[in-house]
């Protein structure tokens, strides 16, 4: 495995780390990892580092980086608004991997509010062939919410942790504390916009994996988090997974292993020749292939696997090496 830090984007304001397999990428797809809320590019519990290295073992390249103004990335010189800027930042990350390693197909992995950024860039950029949204958009019906609350109510007498969570929730309501802008409840992008965006992606042949954890609910009777969409055909086309044993920030090593396995299996199937996992089952392989950008082309400036740079600036400004 080779890793090197990179400064990129306008004015080299964005900071990231590229990870690639030791012998060079054997899979012509790269993963794009970025901030969950305000946590820096390593991710909660350092999960982005673990993802990048696991994917390198599977032959994938990754770039993990900080969006403008977060972690080690500088604020933008000409800010565009958070969502528009994050789309530009994500594209800059993809441009960097394409320039350095010649890879033109990407899997974007968005955690929580990052799912909103991920969906936005996936719509705009056909290089995105896969989008994982983890605890992202949530449109549960009243039935789902009532069932969740009933389960919590039934657990209350027997579970001190549930009692304490309930008391904390009540205290927050009473004290009217600052809104948690980085909470796991995704920004309200609007259900119709979500429906349109995902439909467009699926028609393009982009694989969409909507993954939900045991933080939002304890049980899932069948695509509960998207049940309000009410569109059975669309729901069936989204690769929807609920894993009760993992939580929103992958607090335990065990939950991280489950997540890594799931992601690895999905990505490998997606990158393999033939029908893509999570893609539109109605589209033929030819149609999906026709919608995909060309595969890896050799690029003169791509570093040889044995000579990964100690650091790289995309603007060409000198960086010190150790």
């Amino acid at each position: 495995m080779k890793e090197f830090p990179v400064l990129f984007g306008p004015g080299d304001a964005l900071m990231g780390v590229v990870t690639s397999p030791a012998d060079g990428p054997s899979v012509p797809v790269a993963c794009v990892l970025y901030n969950m809320g305000a946590t820096y590019r390593a991710g909660p519990r350092r999960i982005n580092v673990k993802i990048a290295r696991q994917m390198a073992r599977l032959g994938f390249t990754s770039i993990r980086f900080d969006l403008s103004g977060l972690g080690d990335s500088a604020p933008p010189v000409d800010p565009k608004g958070f969502m528009a800027q994050s789309v530009l930042d994500l594209q800059a990350a993809m441009n960097t991997v394409e320039t350095v390693l010649g890879i033109r197909r990407f899997i974007v992995i968005g955690f929580c509010s990052g799912a909103v950024n991920g969906l936005a860039v996936a719509q705009l950029d056909p290089r995105v062939i896969g989008l994982l949204m983890f605890d992202g958009f949530s449109f549960p019906t009243g039935r789902v919410l009532k069932e969740r609350n009933l389960r919590r109510l039934l657990a209350l007498p027997f579970n001190p942790a549930v009692r304490e969570k309930t008391m904390r929730w009540l205290r927050r309501k009473v004290n009217a504390q600052a809104p948690d802008i980085f909470s796991y409840e995704a920004a309200d992008a609007g259900m119709e916009r979500y429906r349109e965006a995902v439909t467009r992606l699926l028609e393009r042949g982009t694989a969409v994996l909507a993954l939900y954890s045991g933080t939002l609910q304890a049980h899932d009777r069948g695509r509960d988090q998207l049940s309000l969409l009410g569109d059975a055909q669309l729901l069936q086309r989204i690769d929807y997974r609920f894993v009760a044993d993992i939580d929103h920030t992958l607090t335990t090593v065990a939950s991280q292993r489950i997540f890594l396995q799931l992601l690895g299996d999905w990505a490998v199937a997606l990158a393999a020749p033939g029908p893509a996992a999570g893609g539109d089952p109605g589209a033929s392989t030819a149609q999906r292939a026709a919608n995909m950008p060309p595969l890896v082309r050799q690029h003169r400036s791509a570093p040889d696997a044995a000579d990964a740079p100690a650091a790289m600036s995309m603007s060409g400004a000198p960086l010190r090496s150790g």
Binding site: A161, K165, T215, A218, T249
Partner: peptide, 15 residues
């Protein structure tokens, strides 16, 4: 504490 805060209905055997 982090696990209990994170899961919808945490395992009551943790404590």
């Amino acid at each position: 504490d982090a696990i209990e805060q994170s899961y919808c209905i945490p395992d009551r055997g943790l404590r």
